[in-house]
């Protein structure tokens, strides 16, 4: 029996015998990947909205407008070439974030406040 995934959004699609990706990447050139950050309104910072492909920064901005702000979701957009983003590695998350792990005294909840006192 052929297996189907109904979870594929727009309805049942066969999954048996269908390749995922095979690493047969076409040789034709591909536009670089850009990460898109959108400021939803004044007073808020830009947050990551998603990514897209575009040949240059100018086109990336225009595509980002069409792709991520079709319903006035933003008042400002940043596009950043994905290749220049430096990220911490999930493999070293324990050691990397360790220094914060044993310092509960950095949180106000670490301290006892006497009953009845306010403005502390």
């Amino acid at each position: 029996m052929t297996s189907f995934s109904a979870a594929g959004g727009h309805g049942a699609i066969p999954t048996d015998g269908v390749p995922a990706d095979e690493g047969n990447v076409p040789t034709r050139p591909q536009s670089p990947l850009w990460e898109v950050f959108v400021r939803s309104r004044r007073g808020l910072s830009h947050t990551h909205a998603g990514s897209l492909r575009a040949p240059d920064a100018h086109m990336a901005l225009r595509h980002a407008r069409d792709l991520y702000t079709r319903r006035q979701e933003g008042v400002s957009i940043w596009v950043v070439p994905a290749s220049v983003i430096v990220a911490s590695s999930p493999d070293e998350k324990d050691s990397f974030f360790d220094p914060a792990g044993d310092k509960p005294y950095r949180h106000p909840t670490f301290y006892d406040v006497p009953e009845g006192l306010t403005h502390l």
């Binding site: 049942a12 699609i13 066969p14 990706d21 095979e22 990447v25 076409p26």
Partner: peptide, 24 residues
């Protein structure tokens, strides 16, 4: 693409009928 797939390859797979789309 966040899973390491190549967008152009996926389009090729669609164009060659190896990957499908909803019957609807």
């Amino acid at each position: 693409e966040t899973l390491g797939a190549d967008r152009e390859e996926l389009l090729d797979l669609l164009h060659r009928g190896r990957q499908k789309y909803s019957t609807i």
